[in-house]
Each structure stands twice: as C-alpha cells, then as structure tokens.
Design a protein around this nucleic acid. Structure first.
Lengths: 233, 233
DNA sequence: TCAAAAGTGTTATTACTACACCCATGT
DNA sequence: ACATGGGTGTAGTAATAACACTTTTGA
C-alpha cells in the first residue's frame, strides 16, 4: 500500500520488547524463573527473560519464541499481562515492554539443559530477588493477575503433571493465595464438582498410605465455566 | 548513556498507537463512542479514536491525550485493555495498538462541541456498527473486561452523575450484563452494604412518584474492598 | 381515576465455614 | 507399635434466588 502523505509517515517508531514471567511448581512449591541478565546495561543482575519484537513478528509470537528458547516447550499456557509504557522505564533507552505470564509444568529432563544455558534459576514465589528495571513490578502485577485468573481458570491443573493428587493441588492453591486452605472443604468442593477423575492408582512418594491420583476432567470444566463456577476456597 | 555495541542498536523500532474504547450512559442506556475515521486508509468508516505514541510520551499519557482532545475532560476512569500485536492488524502498515477503555459521565454541555469536531456519535452498547481493522474485537474484549471489572469495582457509579437514583443504577447494571436483574434483590443488597448515602430529595424526571437520589459512599467502598465485596446481582 | 414507575418482605435453597478424629501402611 | 500423611462428616451461618402487591402522584 502507498504510504505517502499519510499520518503513518509522520509517526515515529519505538523499540518494543516482550518480557516473560514464568511460574511453575517444583517440590510442591510455587516458583518463578529468573535470569542473570547478559546484556548491558545492568548485565549480571537478576531479570526476567525478554527480547525485542521483530518487525515481521506478532508480539505474542515473540513471547512464545522467548519461552521456547528457554524451556524448549511449545503449547505453554501464556497470557498477556500488561504493556509497560513509561518513557524512562528502561535505562538503556525508550523501550516499551509487553509482559506475558505463563504457567509451565516443570520437567527437569526436558528443561534443565536449556535453563542452564540461560543462567536461570527457579526462586520461591515469596522470595523473589531484586530485579532490574520495572521487572519487580511486573512480577507483582503477574501475581495479582494469577490470583484473579485462578478464580475462574483451573490454574492449578496447568502447573501440575497430567496425574496429580489432591494434596498436591491443595498446596498449589495455598501457594498462590499465600494462606492455609481447609483441606476438607477443598476436597469436598472439588469432588462434588466432578472436575476430577480418580485413577485406580496411588502416589506413594509422599506417604506410606499413598494418595489417589486424579486427572482433570476438561469436559466438566467447560460445562461449569458456562455457569460461572469459581475456584475459590 | 552510551548505546554503542548494545542489543538496543540492533533492534528495529515499530509504530505504536493507542486506541480508546469509551463507555458512557445516555438516556438510561449504556453507550459506546465511535468515530468517522478521518485518515487513509479506510477514511470515512467507523472506528475507535486513536493516535500514535510519541517518543517522549508515556503510552498511558497518549491515551489520556486522545481522551482529553475528544471530551475536554481529565481525570477520567481509564484502564489498559490489551496490546494488539498482529503483524497485519493495520492495513496501513505494521502498527502495534495498545487499547484503553474508559468510563465517562456524559455531560453534553461540556462535550458536545468536542465530540462534533471529531465526527463522533454515541451508539448503543448492543448496536455497535462495523468498525475498521480489529476495532470490533477490541470493543468485544472491552465489554468482557468491563463485565469482569464491574464485579469488584463500582463501575455503575463512574458512569452516573454524582447524584443518581437506584433505578438508574439498576439500568446500568442490566445494560452491562445484558439481562434483567431482580430489583428487590438489587436494592436489598445495595442498601444493606451501606454503599449509598440517601439524599433528602427526589428525582421526578422519570415518574410522578419520584425516586430518591443517592450519592456513592466512597469510604464504605474502600472498607468493603478489603474484605472482597462483589457487585454481582 | 388511572397509568406509570417506586418501593417493600418472606421463604426456600444453596454455598460457605469451622472444626477433630480415624485410616492405611512402611519402618 | 508408632509415626506420617491421607481421608472423612456435620452443623451453624450467610448469601442467593424467586416471587407479587401496595404506594404515590401528575395528568
């Protein structure tokens, strides 16, 4: 298309980056992935992982690309958090950042190599180190968004393996909301909802008695969503 | 700061715009503000109002600027909706758009002149015309966001004048959720909440009996929010 | 007097909260 | 036998949903 004499010619372009906030569950704890920043300014400090958006690249695709490079995983749950647009938010120049948050099922067999290449580590949800620029604010915003979203989307199921136990799921929700949840009420509401399919086997890794394994019933979930079900406990 | 030899030099900048979805209540109906697009491509078609973000301008400030030019109002309720980042979303070139939605109290004395200058009109919430580019999707997303937000933020109060009646407020909620709400239950929950301060006068513009005027009790609201009050009916 | 909108209460149902003990099993 | 985590039930309280008639008053 001919762009002469349009307002498009007069507008000035800006640098646009994506930054990823990555949540996962490891050792029954909710964790966040942080990185040693490799580029100036602020090289060596803790940061989120990001990248500039290319001219021929969807912003969402850029975020997916970052996550793929990091974890070697595709089809990851990812949502846009916010576009951070302060003029001076990046000390290296005027850069917009579109932040995305994602939930991944930590599987060390697949990820360890990639994550090490990025000088990354998982840190506890409630012990996030000082991060560069406005990345600390991004993480706080993401936690708020995660809590909001967790009420209507079964976030706990995204973070756990296909087969999981009720005590595991309970711990995820307790971590997300940073409070104790009554295990009887939790179990009661979940089982009554028909969201869980009990499997004929137990996980005995955490107790002698063993705990039944379940899988998520996606069909029930889709029906419940139409009627406004919530994952509040 | 010296930007030589950093990744900032290699990144390619992009055009970034803001677009505004503006809601208001007029004649007891929830409405949306749309515009005749004045620039090519697609001049003459219905559109949201937007602008490019300047290099020295906060993205949020750009959205405020657009709204100020349009309505001559400042201190308007405005929230970021989403950053739309498709490569080919704008037929005039690659342009990111950060969409904002806002709620305004329609006051024709102040706004008429500005809105006419922009070839704008208020259209009914449920009769939005075909809009250019992805603006139709933006509006749909904004309506979803509005409904979500309305559960925890007293959006109805932002849209109405300082002094309003309960039937007026009910109509706003009915419009937002596009369904009938039981007026006895609505009234009961609101009055019990102590969110309304009854004024010693009535609005007789819509009935012979007249309806008591109320104002919003911001202090009660702030207390209720701490305990998770919701505006669901 | 009548039309048109404002205002008012009760009941049944459902969801939520709080709370304490027994079970199964590997060591 | 005992330590460890898994699993279960009830009762009180609070919120929600459904429902129809009377009141006021200007025209």
């Amino acid at each position: 298309m001919d762009k002469k004499n349009t307002i498009y010619d007069q507008a000035q372009p800006l640098l646009v980056a994506v930054d990823c906030i990555v949540f996962g569950v490891e050792d029954n704890h909710l964790k966040l992935l942080v990185f040693k920043r490799e580029v100036e300014p602020l090289a060596g400090e803790w940061s989120l992982l990001g990248s500039f958006v290319q001219p021929d690249e969807h912003v969402f695709t850029a975020a997916k690309r970052v996550l793929k490079e990091l974890t070697n995983m595709e089809d990851i749950y990812m949502e846009q958090l916010h576009c951070y647009g302060n003029v001076d938010r990046d000390s290296g120049g005027r850069v917009l950042s579109v932040a995305y948050w994602s939930l991944i099922r930590i599987d060390h067999n697949h990820e360890e190599f990639h994550i090490k290449n990025h000088l990354a580590k998982w840190v506890s949800f409630d012990q996030v180190p000082q991060l560069v620029l406005d990345h600390g604010k991004m993480v706080n915003d993401a936690i708020g968004h995660l809590r909001e979203r967790a009420k209507f989307y079964p976030i706990g199921f995204e973070l756990l393996p296909e087969e999981f136990t009720i005590p595991q799921l309970l711990k995820v929700y307790e971590a997300i909301y940073a409070r104790n949840i009554d295990d009887r009420n939790f179990r009661k509401k979940l089982l009554k909802s028909d969201l869980l399919i009990q499997l004929p086997k137990k996980d005995k890794s955490t107790s002698k008695k063993g705990s039944f394994l379940y899988k998520f019933n996606r069909k029930t979930y889709e029906q419940l969503m139409l009627s406004g079900y919530s994952f509040e406990f």
